[in-house]
Design a protein around this nucleic acid. Structure first.
Lengths: 256, 256
DNA sequence: CGGAACGTTGAGCATAATCAACGACTGTGG
DNA sequence: CCACAGTCGTTGATTATGCTCAACGTTCCG
């Protein structure tokens, strides 16, 4: 049994045929929320959480479904409980750029602004904990620690956005692709006994291209190149990636 | 007297031979601060400003001088009183991307984070109102309105950063250059009686290239192209730009 | 079996980068 | 005063990187 034939996709539900349907109960318990520690709510104590609890509604969005449209009034705010979403910007003639990815613990939504130029789409079935925007803004007034945590998150997002500007403005295709795999490995890679690292790509080739400002063909060619160089290998699915040579990958992502 | 020969550079002090030297008095009056309305401090009342006043120090930085180095401990926070600065990110081999421009009323500095990967450099002689980072963070605790204003600013910067990702990842050289001139016109253009708009480019060609993710030669060729098409014209200096055909410029920036 | 979505590979092309030369302007020092 | 160096901006010739267009393979369902 080789890596190439036996490894299966575990982390991500298939985008095509998700089985779960329906809407979670209106009120849920924050106590056993899987992202309580990592989400914004982590800055609140049990007592304060009760207020939030009353406001929050669970919402399950299917793969491909749009959560928030560019140009729409920004009326919602939400925490991601599970799944994966993309934030995209579009040119008038339809070229797409993914400007951010959202995973469990991240938040969605424009605050203090009536319109958004961005679209949020679920890439796989995702579970959101949503609040009316105005109610959440009121919570920020009431709980300074919540606001401070939000500020820190937004500052971190801004730093990440600026780092991505360097990638999009100045890096070659090879550096972008190698750097993306490296970033995913750092974020959620599984280091194995022999030093190789398993990474499940959370996006398909098209999304990878839209994230890195390249075309799908260029993504494929660069991945093939990395595979030919034995820097990475693929498992059963083209989303199961194993890093064979982290040092070389780092060099390709950040040459001299 | 034609536009091409008579218009002079007014807004920006020459980057080469600035005459003013020295350091402003340690304590200044916020009352007659030129950016009081537009800077973060605008959210404070007169009484609260007294506390800030005690902490702030004026600092004049010369053109080309670095205010904050990538990798340095982030110990300073400042408001821009006058001038223009750039925030840059660098690849390991020295390619540069300008990830943000700073003008009077904007703030400089990393908060709640011990290191920064970004470098801030004065493009022309600039006047800053600086605070020790820790002291400013304490002010945020004391004055919730200050923190709220900061949060709104950072959210706006994040939106701008994401918009720039679309430019850097998906737009052509023509769209980038036309869009940049359009952006400057919207921000600080001077509309004339005949409908043309005067814009003083706050950056030289190299900085324009580093901002738009292009080379200096491509910038020149695109500007020449716009000039040949009579969409823009240049005055005495290559930084004095006049928009002759705003409609066409908009079409070139956002085709179909 | 057939269609749809996704992924890969090839051939040719176009956009922007690279390399090079030159003009305008400014300040410096002989 | 003029020669010179330095910076900035412009233009030309050539190249290369990544895009476009096209074909085809695989997988998964209906």
């Amino acid at each position: 049994m080789t890596w190439r034939t036996t490894v299966t996709l575990e982390l991500l539900p298939s985008p095509i045929h998700s089985t779960q349907r329906g809407i979670a109960p209106a009120h849920h318990r924050c106590d056993d929320c899987p992202v309580r520690a990592s989400a914004l709510c982590g800055s609140l104590n049990d007592e304060e959480l009760v207020s939030l609890n009353r406001l929050g509604r669970r919402r399950i969005v299917q793969a491909g479904q749009i959560v928030s449209w560019a140009g729409d009034p920004a009326s919602m705010f939400a925490n991601v409980i599970s799944g994966a979403l993309k934030i995209t910007a579009l040119t008038v003639d339809g070229r797409e750029q993914i400007v951010g990815l959202l995973f469990p613990g991240d938040f969605v939504g424009q605050l203090f602004s009536d319109k958004t130029q961005l679209t949020v789409t679920a890439m796989v079935e995702s579970d959101l904990c949503t609040y009316p925007r105005s109610a959440f803004e009121a919570m920020l007034d009431a709980f300074p620690r919540l606001e401070r945590t939000l500020l820190q998150r937004v500052l971190a997002s801004l730093n990440e956005a600026r780092d991505r500007m360097l990638t999009l403005g100045r890096k070659t295709a090879q550096e972008r692709v190698a750097g993306f795999i490296q970033y995913l490995a750092m974020r959620s890679g599984d280091v194995r006994a022999d030093g190789t690292v398993d990474v499940i790509l959370p996006v398909n080739r098209t999304e990878m291209a839209d994230y890195l400002g390249l075309t799908i063909e260029t993504i494929c060619r660069q991945l093939t190149r990395l595979r030919t160089m034995s820097v990475i290998a693929f498992g059963a699915s083209p989303r199961d990636c194993r890093i064979l040579d982290s040092e070389q990958l780092d060099y390709l992502a950040n040459p001299i």
